[in-house]
Design a protein around this nucleic acid. Structure first.
Length: 359
DNA sequence: TTCCTGAGGA
DNA sequence: TCCTCCGGAA
């Protein structure tokens, strides 16, 4: 972690203080663990109350008072005022990555509030309609069906393996591979750790990159067994340490395996479409983001948390059928009126770069 | 023949 | 930043 949280408390104060217009970004992005309860910062923009206020002695923050909704099993059960001392945040590692992202994002654009894109709700609604009328070839969250009948630990391991296999692979192919592993009792860390790598390879064929994935599966099973008692890591950091698990898959597994939304699962489609819509930008600029990770940070600053999970399957389907990487079908897209990139890309199949090279 | 797609290594 | 991995689609 490169940004030392709460050493730079002023960044946090600036964000939380109502006199600075950060309402949308802060209020919408934080679900945090304080004590053992799950709290959500009350959205400033949707509440009569201010979302939060700080008590300071001029230099440092004494107390942060937050108006929160208490949530149990995804239902709001109570709205209260909470007082939080900075050192409590400091002592709670669960809280650190989120605040850190958040403080980092705000630091770099402190002089102006994060822009919530105009009409984003209309755009999402339009995409939903297009998706419901057109067949989507791939359901990227297919791994959530993995092992639904298994006990929790086995189900989580199945989700992890399923996620690993599903990348760059059609859903039915992934499903077949999972079924074959299941039939051969090779869907637990213990079994995979003992098994032969060539056998795994044969069973998961023809998923994309099966050689590399078979090797990673063995390594992952061994790590899960030795460090997590055969379960999968329960933190983003732990998941990222597994070979073959990057940011995209780690967020997916946190969402599906642990039902813990740590961040948006940003793949190439989400990355591309959010940039075309100008929904994301590099901190403090209007430049496009250059990596999916940068897109994730930028998107999380304003997109309401309820949309964090559904946005992935929505944009993946949209990206495969209409907003394609090459030659997007802006002519049939019902939200092109809201899209600054509509009809900007050359509709001609002939490649400019090649033509230039030849001439 | 080129691209898709996410992780990782040069 | 570019390449590799794997099979399949365009």
């Amino acid at each position: 972690m490169s940004f030392p949280l709460l050493k730079n408390i002023s960044a946090l104060v600036n964000v939380i203080s109502p006199k600075i217009t950060f309402s949308s970004s802060f209020s919408q992005m934080k679900t945090t663990r304080l004590s053992s309860a799950k709290w959500e910062i009350n959205p400033l923009s949707e509440s009569k109350n201010p979302g939060s206020e700080c008590a300071t002695d001029g230099e440092s923050v004494q107390t942060i008072r937050v108006y929160v909704r208490k949530k149990r099993a995804k239902k709001t059960v109570q709205t209260t005022v909470e007082e939080v001392r900075p050192e409590i945040l400091d002592q709670n590692p669960c809280r650190l990555p989120e605040i850190e992202d958040f403080a980092y994002g705000k630091e770099s654009s402190c002089s102006h509030s994060t822009q919530v894109p105009d009409n984003w709700e209309k755009v999402l609604e339009g995409i939903r309609k297009m998706r419901s009328s057109e067949d989507a070839p791939v359901d990227s969250m297919g791994c959530e069906k993995a092992g639904t009948s298994l006990p929790p630990k086995e189900r989580r391991f199945a989700v992890l393996v399923s996620s690993l296999l599903s990348s760059q692979t059609k859903d039915n192919v992934t499903h077949g591979a999972i079924q074959r592993l299941l039939q051969n009792d090779l869907l637990t860390a213990e079994a995979i750790d003992k098994s032969n790598e060539d056998e795994i390879k044969g069973l998961i064929y023809p998923v994309g990159f099966y050689t590399r994935k078979a090797s990673n599966m063995k390594k992952i099973a061994n790590i899960c067994l030795s460090k997590y008692g055969g379960d999968i890591p329960s933190t983003l950091q732990g998941l990222l340490e597994l070979p073959g698990i990057g940011p995209k898959m780690a967020h997916l597994v946190m969402n599906v395996g642990w039902d813990n939304v740590q961040g948006i699962c940003v793949d190439t489609h989400v990355h591309r479409i959010c940039n075309r819509l100008a929904w994301v930008s590099r901190p403090g600029t209007k430049q496009k983001t250059s990596t999916p990770e940068e897109t994730r940070m930028s998107l999380q600053l304003w997109l309401p948390k309820e949309e964090w999970v559904p946005i992935n399957p929505l944009l993946v389907g949209f990206g495969q059928t209409i907003c394609t990487p090459r030659r997007p079908r802006c002519g049939v897209c019902t939200i092109s009126g809201f899209c600054p990139s509509a009809f900007n890309e050359s509709p001609s199949p002939s490649s400019k770069s090649k033509a230039n090279k030849r001439s």
